[in-house]
Structures are given as C-alpha cells and as structure tokens.
Write a protein that binds this DNA or RNA. Structure first.
Lengths: 158, 158
DNA sequence: CAATGTTTCTAGCCTAGCTAGTGAAATTGA
DNA sequence: TCAATTTCACTAGCTAGGCTAGAAACATTG
C-alpha cells in the first residue's frame, strides 16, 4: 500500500525539516515551534499569552517563562502588557523575527501551495478525507504509533 | 485550500500521538522512537547497530550509548555481539518490547490500513503524489517550515 | 605489518525540561 | 462589599537527556 509509505516519508521529511530549521536558526526545536506559533497567531490577529503557548507546546508555564527569556534575549519575542488582565502578558514577535521567518518560509510555502493546487479537483476531497481519517487514527485513545516496514532511508549492517 | 489544513491537522495529531505514547509507555520520545526503529527493522530482518540508530535519531553515538543503557535497564532492548565486527554490537528488542508495542499498535495500524484501502482506486495515485511532493517541499534546502493560519485548536485571549 | 579509520563506550559538562512555591490580580459568592 | 478562592506569570532548585573529547578494541588499507 503506497499511501502509508508516502505518509511515512512525509513524516520523516517533516521531522528532518524541523531539525534543519532549528539548526539553521540556531535555537532548539521547541523555541522554533513557539516562534512559528506566535507569528501565525499574530498574522491572524490573535493575542498569545504564555499560558496558551505552554498549552500548545505541551510544556509547563515555568518552562515557558524560560523560553520567553531565551527568545527575548535573542531578540525574537517580546512581552507586552496584557490589555485587560494585569497579571498576564501578551507575547509579541519582533519585526526581525517576522522578517527572518518570512525569508525562510516564503519559498517553501509557495511551493506547498503550488503542489496543493496541482492536485486534480476531482481527487481533492479524497486527499483531504484521507488525511483527516489518518489524523483520527492517530488521535484514537490507546495508540502508540504505526510501525510498518522501515523505509529505505537507513543503513542496516546487512 | 483544505489540503494544507488537513496536512497541518495530521501533523499536530502525529505530534500529540508521540507525546501520549511517550507518556503512556513511561519513557521519553527519543527512546520510543528508537524502540520503534529497532522493532521495525527487526521485522524486516535487518540488524541495527548503535551507530545506525544514532544516525536515524539524529543524536550522537555517545547519547545513544546512554539510550541503550536506559532501554536495557527497562528491559526493552539488549546488546548482542555483532556477528562479523567485534567492535560493534547488534541492538535487539526483547520479547516483552515486541509484545508491548504490538499490543499498543495493532488497533491503530489496522485502522490505518482500512483508511488507506477506503481511498478510491482512482484517487490513490493523486494522494500518494501529493504526499511525496509535500515531502519534497520540506526537504528543499533552505526551508524553515510552513506557517499558514493557526488552526482552531488554540485559545487566544480574544 | 604499520598506519589509519571506525566503533562503542566513559567522563564530565550544559541546557531545557520539571515541581513546588510566591506575589499580584481577577473572580466568585455570601 | 469584601473575604476566599482561583488564575497568572515568575523564581528557585533539581534532573534527565543531550553534547564534546578522549580511550580502548578492532578493522582496513597500502
């Protein structure tokens, strides 16, 4: 079944991309993920609090405080006062962060759009349904992850 | 474009699944990944060395030594002497590890197969091509990762 | 067979997580 | 209204899982 093979390949590519990205931007994977999260929400005009960020990243708020310190020091994120809750804070990406991410993303994102548009109209619902159903499989309660035969991306000793 | 939305959803589901899996098996994500790798290769009758494992996981061989110690202590992996290279080692999953993983995976894997088989014959090549092309996008040299609008899985402060 | 390369492991360090607990502000309820 | 509770971000201190450097055993090559 080539579909599962293709899915596995995509997952590995995604993992490797995150790795390169983290390497290339000289920050750890969580920090990059956080940066992407903040920027995406900023583009959608939605404020991000440390708590929301922690929930998304799956780390504690204490760790998020440290994360914000790091990304503050590196000049990517800033803490602004929350407009309505004086205990809280709004996390904002700096212009530099926006520019840096835009620069790195633009090309890939454009390519992805092209690829999506190249899928024949008639097949699109099936593609979307397939991915949604796969997501459902992974979301089911008691799962551990799929295995399947290894891809040819390894170097067994033979 | 719903395809990219579906793809994002799949990625998040995959991430969360790994998180639950790591939580549920009471080991860190890298160790689970390693276990899956070893078991998958074992099923394909391919030996796994610490070095190959390190390469796959993207960590140093020194860290892999520690990883093997951990998974040895927990009774999931074993070091066997390498048949032809006396410097080296073959990493083997214990029966218990096989059973544990099989138990956790069986249902999900079965579901995934069903989902794949439910995709209409006519659309399958398009689905596979889409995923392959997306993987290529992510593999391109200078990429950072896609952004796109955030999904509704967040709780912005409004 | 000497020289070089490869493989795993050890020793010691550093970072990014964690829990527990704090002070300040918001919310709830009597 | 105001006391009690909850929620928020943060601090302090710990731990685990990465890293580099270097060593010993073995393989490979000229």
């Amino acid at each position: 079944m080539g579909l599962l093979r293709a899915l596995r390949r995509f997952r590995v590519a995604d993992r490797d991309m995150r790795r390169r990205m983290s390497e290339g931007m000289d920050m750890n994977a969580t920090d990059v993920d956080a940066l992407r999260y903040v920027i995406a929400h900023e583009r959608a005009r939605e404020a991000v609090t440390p708590r929301a960020l922690a929930a998304y990243l799956g780390i504690s708020t204490a760790s998020t405080t440290k994360l914000l310190d790091r990304l503050g020091r590196s000049g990517h994120l800033r803490r602004d006062p929350h407009p309505r809750d004086r205990r809280s804070v709004v996390v904002v990406a700096t212009d530099r962060a926006h520019a840096e991410v835009r620069e790195r993303l633009a090309r890939m994102h454009r390519r992805m759009l092209e690829v999506a548009e190249a899928v024949p109209e008639a097949s699109r619902p099936d593609v979307a349904r397939f991915l949604d159903a796969m997501a459902d499989c992974l979301s089911a309660e008691d799962t551990l992850g799929d295995l399947g035969p290894p891809d040819a991306s390894t170097e067994p000793i033979g």
